[in-house]
């Protein structure tokens, strides 16, 4: 549980960080909260030669609303998300999910950017970002670009982020007032990754569902956006039949591995159950105003 040796860099700006990334290529690794990277280094499963610590970069912090988007700096911590009045009022799904990540001490260190960019299927925020149609702002040597969360994840630790790119900001279209959302996570204990988890974001036009997004955590090689589940809900009153159909479609896409959280069959069933609970809760919240 002792890491190998590495060089430590603490850039003061995004430009400087991007330059370092360009310089070191695959030998460099971004250190944000460190709660995924450092355990991997202590096990020597990760052996970066250069750590680029972005915690000194002021422009990566902060949570604000601009141009119809909620803009969250990549280095904002889960604790920052939990403390934000703006998010509590406009997008309560984010603090709801943040509160289910790890424990309070870790949430003071762990960042939103690290959680979404790391590519670990066990991380909770990728599914939440997919459900909210978030966009990731990336910066590399060639400049800035945007990638939709729904297009970002290719597989386990395999994302659209290039080796020389830095995630700088998460941009979420501010959800319309009256929307309903929920993140339901089943876990063995505080701090655990999900046995299965699901996010649902719904809006209603009268008593009919106008839009629906359903996503899953930790039941595949990456977070899963279940387009078909949303389709099963739109236009319905989100009654038991529609919910059952949406959950069945979610289960059809779930492909978890068997692990100590349970056999694949069980984890698939729990993906369905969490989807059911997320959809029902989101619908109730939407209807409750």
């Amino acid at each position: 549980m002792i890491p190998g040796s590495f060089a430590y860099h603490r850039p003061a700006s995004v430009d400087e960080a991007v330059a370092l990334l360009g310089q070191f290529g695959e030998d460099g690794k971004v250190l944000a909260g460190g709660h995924s990277l450092i355990p991997m280094m202590k096990l020597r499963l990760a052996t970066p030669e250069h750590l680029i610590d972005i915690n000194g970069i002021g422009e990566l912090k902060g949570i604000r609303e601009e141009g119809g988007q909620l803009r969250i700096g990549a280095a904002a911590t889960q604790a920052d998300i939990l403390a934000s009045d703006l998010l509590a009022n406009t997008c309560p799904l984010l603090p709801e999910a943040a509160a289910l990540i790890a424990d309070p001490q870790i949430r003071y260190c762990g960042t939103l950017g690290g959680n979404v960019a790391n590519g670990d299927p066990g991380n909770d925020m990728p599914a939440v970002m997919m459900a909210l149609a978030a966009i990731y702002a990336l910066r590399g040597p060639g400049g800035a670009r945007e990638v939709a969360a729904r297009d970002f994840y290719h597989g386990t630790f395999d994302t659209a982020l290039a080796e020389n790119e830095l995630l700088t900001e998460i941009r979420i279209p501010t959800p319309a007032p009256g929307h309903g959302a929920s993140y339901q996570k089943m876990k063995r204990k505080v701090g655990d990754y999900a046995t299965a988890a699901a996010a649902a974001v719904l809006s209603f036009d009268g008593d009919r569902c106008a839009s629906a997004a359903v996503t899953l955590t930790n039941v595949g090689e990456a977070a899963i956006f279940v387009t078909e589940a949303g389709d099963a809900l739109v236009g319905t009153a989100v009654d038991d039949t529609a919910v059952a159909e949406a959950a069945a479609r979610a289960m059809a896409l779930a492909a978890p591995v068997s692990d100590l959280r349970g056999p694949a069959e069980y984890r698939t069933q729990m993906a369905g159950e969490m989807a059911r609970r997320a959809i029902r809760t989101a619908a109730a919240r939407a209807k409750g105003g």
């Binding site: 424990d103 063995r188 204990k189 505080v190 701090g191 655990d192 990754y193 100590l260």
Partner: peptide, 16 residues
């Protein structure tokens, strides 16, 4: 040996 860390080996917190 599978799960020889506190990620898997169950040590309940005050929550559980």
């Amino acid at each position: 040996v599978m799960g020889a860390s506190f990620l898997d080996y169950f040590i309940p917190t005050t929550v559980e």
